[in-house]
Design a protein around this nucleic acid. Structure first.
Lengths: 187, 187
DNA sequence: CGCCGAGTTGAACTGAATCAAGAAACGTGG
DNA sequence: CCACGTTTCTTGATTCAGTTCAACTCGGCG
């Protein structure tokens, strides 16, 4: 549980009672590489936290898979279009490496938000950070060419290149597999 | 103040004391078309709310202006990269029509967040909604061609076409002025 | 050894940018 | 109310980054 608490308390302090409730509500699971944590079309009932490992969140766009988000160790993730809206999701979540994942039921998270102002505050601040990450991503997709996107990617995920196959990197960057291959050919 | 309270209470109820404090902290201003509400390079100290009118939030990318956000009546806006981080902003905010704007000082907003759990909750939920709007925008920029983007734009801002010049629409859509003109030529 | 998925390389194609020039709309001053 | 200049918008020709399609290479594994 260390990684979760250090993630949360880097944002804002939490009272001990809140930590105790978080502890009581956490569901710790291990998933093997290739496992589908969540499938499109369903309502996602969990907010996840990646304790260790790697996952991809993708959706299908005209028979192609498009990766929207990479879940790396120490960060939260979910099917964001579904979890809060309680509507069916377009996303699928696939575990890419044997991973340790914490899961929090929607109702439990709501209880935490409700009971602890400090937790609600952390929720707001985390969402704000993720908003800024998305803003950067828009900038990338809208104005950077293929080469620049790859460089941005390497900076943002320095230790991930050899853990992801080219298809996935290309999909995350919004460029074709061939273009990415050509870019890497010139180091 | 009607539009602000109805915006906030559509998200979550607020206790009367919170409303009273909001009222006390609101700074109501009127700005003429063309007024620069905020300039890049400074720290933005205000969260704004557009009571009526229109504004654009843009930044400069290699001597060109890129519109990131349109502030329409009934919605909040600010230099989002600066307001919460307290760092200098890349954005400039220009009033596009004579507008009525409410402004909230950073410290006042923090006080509201701090004093009222309900307000903190509203802040979180609004941020979440804006996150989803950005996610849609990524989808637009990454996968829609020029024509589809224009159609998306018309759907999202149905009453705005004739209030914005083509240059601004093109900039918001991330396409060139000429391409947009050609698209409109075929109705 | 041969198959299969992943990655590379080549050639042709394309949507949209850019460059360029002209038309329309707009507003300001005489 | 018109003349002129400026800004906004349209239209055409050219160019380019990246996609698509296709063939080939490489490495691992039954």
């Amino acid at each position: 549980m260390q990684p979760l608490f250090s993630f949360l308390e880097a944002v804002n302090d939490l009272p001990d009672e809140a930590k105790a409730l978080i502890l009581a509500k956490t569901r710790i699971k291990h998933y093997p590489k290739g496992h589908l944590l969540f499938r499109e079309g369903q309502v996602c009932h969990y907010m996840y936290f990646m304790a260790s490992g790697l996952a991809r969140i993708f959706h299908c766009k005209e028979d192609k898979e498009v990766i929207d988000w990479l879940a790396t160790a120490g960060h939260p993730f979910t099917a964001i279009d579904s979890f809060y809206s309680r509507q069916p999701s377009r996303y699928t979540i696939e575990i890419l490496e044997n991973s340790e994942v914490y899961a929090f039921l929607y109702d439990d998270l709501e209880e935490l938000y409700h009971q602890f102002h400090a937790f609600e505050r952390i929720g707001r601040l985390i969402t704000q950070e993720q908003f800024l990450i998305l803003q950067e991503r828009i900038d990338m997709v809208q104005f950077q060419n293929a080469q620049q996107r790859y460089e941005t990617f390497l900076k943002r995920f320095p230790n991930i290149q050899n853990r992801l196959q080219l298809t996935h990197i290309a999909s995350y960057l919004g460029i074709s597999l061939e273009t990415l291959s050509r870019i890497r050919a010139k180091y």
